[in-house]
Amino acid sequence: MKTFFYILFLISFSSFGQEPIETTFVSKSPFEADTVIGIDNFGTIYFIKKNTLYKLDEDGKYSYSNVQFGKITSANSFNPLKVTIFYEDFNTAFILDNRFAEILKVDFSTLEYYKNVSFVSTANDNALWVFNEDIQQLELFDYKSNKNRATTLPTQSKVLDLKSNYNYAWLLTEKFLYKYNYFGSLVYKMENIGYTSLVESNDKIFLIKNNRLSYFNELEKAYQLIETPELLTKQFLVTNETLYIYDSKFLHKFQLNNK
């Protein structure tokens, strides 16, 4: 029996092998949105409300709506000069400039090689990371040449989330967390122990399960709990060392410590 509990301890320690990350409360502000997309270093907020994408900054508010394409599935503001918005029902993405004017429409159904896409995220240059449902593979798609720059091996379970930056893409599935480089090569593959979504900030990954947040420590290959007050976490975002938690009524701001 002692051996059994010792094994359980080792398994737990391998997943959560470090001290929890403490947070310091900064502010709490009333906010209304269906989905908060991103908050940058200057406090610019990107969000979706009533199927319209908004950008709110010190210069005012910009909006983008395209109701003929149905409900907005996702949007990505990582590159503020090329904001990506995706409509899964019509298998189409749009690239918007910093004032939300359309730069390009990408209809994956009309390509020479049809793609049935379920997740889209901004990549480097003129590229998007897209998850192709039909072949269960992540692809780095160049929307100027309409060709793939890279393709990963098929995943082994249902995809839950996709995030990326200029150099890497992180794919969360029911079984694993994958990290790929710009060439589509696998950097690491970690067991997913129940996480349902993730966010990225400066190559750092944060995840959520059962309303609890964690940081994935790549050096230790361990998930590190983040201590926060008991809040309904409808969404969370991280910008540098700042954690934002949206509870559907208020936007809570915290400073991350000891990370």
Rank of each mutant, 00 (worst) to 15 (best):
F4V: 14
K234R: 13
S77A: 11
D125L: 09
D97R: 00
P20D: 04
G184S: 14
Y195M: 12
S77D: 12
K61N: 14
K115T: 02
L128P: 06
K2P: 02
L104S: 14
M190I: 05
P20R: 02
K28Q: 13
S29G: 00
T92N: 07
E58D: 08
L111V: 10
Q137N: 05
T73D: 05
K105P: 02
G17W: 13
A101Y: 12
F141L: 02
Q18D: 13
F86W: 08
V238Q: 10
K28P: 09
Y54W: 05
T110W: 09
L81S: 04
K158R: 13
A101G: 12
E227V: 13
V67L: 12
L213P: 10
N181V: 15
F183H: 11
I48C: 01
Y182D: 15
K209P: 01
S14T: 05
F9P: 02
I245C: 08
K253E: 12
G184T: 14
T242I: 15
I11R: 06
N51D: 05
V120L: 01
A101S: 14
F236Q: 03
S65W: 14
Y6A: 03
F176I: 01
K49I: 00
P30L: 06
N76I: 10
E200S: 09
S109C: 09
V159C: 00
D97Q: 00
K204R: 09
A169D: 11
Y168Q: 12
Y114R: 10
N146R: 07
T155P: 00
R149Y: 15
V159D: 04
Y246W: 13
N210V: 04
L104N: 14
S145Y: 12
I39R: 08
Y166D: 08
A222D: 06
M1F: 15
T155Y: 06
S248D: 06
D89W: 11
F69Q: 12
Q137V: 01
Q255A: 04
I135W: 14
K50N: 11
N258D: 11
E218R: 00
Q18L: 14
F206M: 06
E218Q: 04
F4A: 07
V120A: 00
Y180R: 05
F119C: 03
P20N: 02
V117A: 05
K144A: 08
K253F: 08
Y64T: 09
E174R: 11
K115L: 07
P229L: 07
T152S: 11
A222S: 11
V238K: 09
Y54S: 01
Y188K: 10
I205D: 07
Y114A: 01
I208L: 11
N165D: 15
D40H: 07
T84F: 10
S15P: 06
S12M: 14
L8D: 06
T110Y: 06
Y166E: 10
I205K: 11
G17I: 09
D203Q: 11
A150C: 06
E230A: 03
L128I: 11
Y54F: 10
S145D: 10
A169Q: 12
N146A: 06
E32Q: 14
T196I: 12
V67W: 15
L8F: 07
